[in-house]
Design a protein around this nucleic acid. Structure first.
Lengths: 351, 351
DNA sequence: AACGTTTCGCGAAACGTTTCGCATACTATA
DNA sequence: TATAGTATGCGAAACGTTTCGCGAAACGTT
């Protein structure tokens, strides 16, 4: 609770509802009714006069004062998971933010970026959310079982999770297992049996699920997963490069590699380049996310697409429903789809 | 001015300063002084009691009420230029936003994303900025000579321009002519004389300046610019692909191509692939911006780097100075640098 | 003992809205 | 013509803060 410095700037001061009242020779309340088509009616003649004065004075309602009394700011807090400082820059988060912004536009809401909530593992960390500036919050890929989110549930603060799952909160996510199966099915359909994986980080729910689902899908195809071809990586190109080097250094190589997301896939591309391994001739690659970069790399990456636009739109709409008092839970899982591009092919004949 | 719906949610209601006063058996004002280390002192013993009660009640100051009276929200509005709906997704804007967010973190400010101000060509369009929710605004790449921005200057609303220039507003941008010269110097240094350009859109100041600077740099090297190798594009990969096709269809081809930004460069890469033109053996390419994708494409793109982090940090700091009443103008131009990667080489001998 | 000066505390005003309660005046119904 | 109902308007309270002004008590200095 810091000291608050006195205001000095903002030379021209805004007209208030009081100024209008004075000019239009009516009371403040009447002005309010006129401006809002308020809970009470005001005769056309005087309403027109008020409107005229308002526009002449360039009147703009002060939303701070308004939200103090209505207890609505029409602002949605967006909380990214931010492990490192630059988390916001990831393509995944960006697409999500973009979807949310688009949805907000239609719903007449604004977005407050709450980036200082990096660690949400305590009640206190989430306090900035509760100071009246936003009506609710969207959490993007929050860490599982966060104490902060439990607190919000407890006090009934409207919030939704996108790419995250919690029985007690309205959540929107994808079915990773379906997505991964699509990838493995595709490899198997092409005739691959020697399939490796650049695994995601176990701490992130998406990483964990994709890793598990891979094992499962392989099993259901009767394929054996080779420990030596399962390399751990984090969701980052550099990590993909490193993991790729490890994988390609094995004396026997797989003919197909599933990457836990597109960022590690682009890292893997680099590794292939280093080892003079051709994609898709020598090795087939599938990613996950359908990030914008997947069409920028050569060959374009076959990947599993998430309906990010849909998800972010649903999440945003659900949040405003929640804010408006609807209580039924709207959680939903979204369907993924395989986008076939040029990074997959039949395996070469064994020489 | 729409109707305001009554609040329904938010079951548990927050403790107010009044509750604390009652519990701690002091007056409201004393609580405020204690909590803020306020303009007046309060004896340690009673201050401690107040603090205890506050934390017991999970008290959080209502920032809406506070900013109503202090006229400070500690929120910075960020206004992207948004021609299409998905403008926010561009790598350029994202890096800038990321930089702003990082700076805000250090300056204890929050970010309100104002995306509905798409057209800033009238006073009215900017009204949402003036309703008390933010103390100032950062405009990212605003269109030149916008009437909305003039209005802000007129009424003295704190604002800064980043990637934009206006004598009357504090602005931060790069010297495109220096950047472009670096690129042309590099080509010339390698021995290229047949240099083409995938030009930027003239409407955007960056596009315009880069195009002009190219002509100028070529002239200063005594190189002739060939009309047929100057292809117009917009700052988008698709457009780069199309322009690239046009360029590569010429019966004589340049040995080097300067692209107005990295996005069109990635498009040009695709065109080269289609035409089986090798980079850098057959043609050298330089981009502009040093976007994240420039290291994801093969071969990694040589490009002109902008100090986006620095710019966004300076812009953010300047804005809060402005808000705090400092009046000296802090406009600044930033220096660009060439990042040499693998997309440039000496031209092949004429056969 | 008389005096300034500081410390401490409270009440109240202010910020700009929304909306309730009340007082008129007008209108329709019995 | 009396009466209920409705349109019209105003004043005031409320939202949760910050901070000013005022008084009372405590303190030190002559």
């Amino acid at each position: 609770m810091r000291n608050v410095s006195r205001n000095v700037s903002q030379s021209t001061k805004m007209a208030t509802i009081k100024d209008i009242a004075r000019e239009a020779k009516v009371s403040v309340s009447t002005v309010s009714y006129a401006l809002n088509d308020g809970p009470r009616s005001v005769p056309d003649e005087v309403k027109q006069r008020i409107l005229d004065v308002a526009s002449r004075l360039h009147y703009r309602p002060n939303r701070v004062a308004r939200s103090l009394i209505t207890r609505r700011s029409h602002v949605l807090g967006v909380v990214p998971t931010r492990i490192e400082r630059d988390m916001i820059i990831g393509p995944y988060f960006v697409s999500m933010l973009n979807g949310i912004v688009n949805a907000c536009e239609d719903l007449h809401q604004d977005v407050l970026l709450l980036t200082q909530l990096s660690t949400m593992d305590s009640k206190e960390a989430l306090y900035p959310l509760l100071d009246g500036r936003c009506d609710g919050a969207i959490f993007i890929a929050p860490s599982h079982d966060s104490e902060g989110i439990h607190y919000l549930q407890e006090i009934g603060f409207p919030h939704v999770l996108v790419i995250g799952r919690d029985e007690r909160s309205t959540s929107f996510d994808i079915d990773n297992s379906v997505g991964v199966r699509l990838a493995v099915d595709h490899f198997a359909g092409l005739g691959h049996t020697k399939i490796g994986m650049l695994m995601g980080p176990e701490e992130l729910i998406d990483g964990y699920e994709r890793n598990q689902s891979f094992l499962e899908s392989m099993r259901s195809h009767g394929l054996t997963v080779q420990e030596k071809w399962m390399i751990r990586a984090s969701f980052h190109p550099d990590s993909g490069l490193e993991a790729g080097r490890v994988l390609l250094s094995r004396k026997e190589r797989p003919t197909a590699v599933f990457c836990a997301n597109d960022e590690v896939a682009t890292g893997f591309y680099k590794a292939c380049k280093e080892f003079k391994v051709r994609i898709p001739e020598d090795i087939s690659v599938i990613g996950f996310d359908n990030a914008p970069t997947s069409t920028m790399v050569e060959p374009n990456l076959t990947t599993v697409k998430q309906p990010i636009d849909q998800m972010s739109r649903h999440a945003t709409e659900a949040l405003v429903s929640l804010i408006e008092g609807k209580t039924e839970t709207l959680s939903r899982r979204f369907i993924t789809a395989l986008v076939e591009r040029q990074s997959t092919a039949r395996p070469m004949e064994d020489k």
